[in-house]
Design a protein around this nucleic acid. Sequence first.
DNA 1: CGGGATCCAGTAGGATACTG
DNA 2: CAGTATCCTACTGGATCCCG
Lengths: 123, 123
Amino acid sequence: MNVTSPPAPRDCRKVSDVFSRIGDRWSMQVILVLNNQKQRFNEIKKGVNGISQQMLARTLKLLERDGLIERFVLDASPPKVSYELTTLGLSLAEQVMALASWSLLNFETLSQNRERYDKTHEN
Amino acid sequence: MNVTSPPAPRDCRKVSDVFSRIGDRWSMQVILVLNNQKQRFNEIKKGVNGISQQMLARTLKLLERDGLIERFVLDASPPKVSYELTTLGLSLAEQVMALASWSLLNFETLSQNRERYDKTHEN
DNA sequence: CGGGATCCAGTAGGATACTG
DNA sequence: CAGTATCCTACTGGATCCCG
């Protein structure tokens, strides 16, 4: 895709599809936490601030379904399961990391913009 | 932020905040369509496949609130309004374009992975 | 420990009609 | 043309309990 022009409508649907899959509240955060680190369920849970057990389980399953992470059952009783980004997942993680860096860099600016907007439009 | 390590929990919240703002169904698509192109309301609507009038109006207002786009009223009656990415919006658009390119490149792989997963887990 | 099942609330998002 | 107002539905995500 040309970087200087908007995508074609057909492309838009594909982009929309991928975005709506990873653009939920948790997927990208899980990808970030797993970046270069094979981790177990509760380790990921600690890493992702505020996620519930169920949402983590759901998110991991969807990411596994897309082939972005791989699930390893280490032991059955007591259960030990760990997760790791696949090659595909790692390539996505790079893009997500770039977006995350942008977010950290510009978070304050965004907050200030919102505050200013709300003040001038509160009528 | 270091690209090889997961972000700190405090950073995670900021990243989550930004992601939950632009990670909805439409924001990133609008940003893509506006990339390097000042456009009017209905032009954007044509560019973003399937968006309703209301959702476009809502999305544009939120993006303007964050200072990512600027709104220009050209005429009052009949109304003519156009939108353009700000410098901040352009810098975000770069990251979003990278993610969009990844999406186009790997869309087929993702679809196949899902299909395969669903077949082997349908029990 | 790593989930699954169930129930519930909040909100994102769609359809339609109306307006300056 | 570029919105706003209203209503409604569907889905996301949270809480809780249970299970091997």
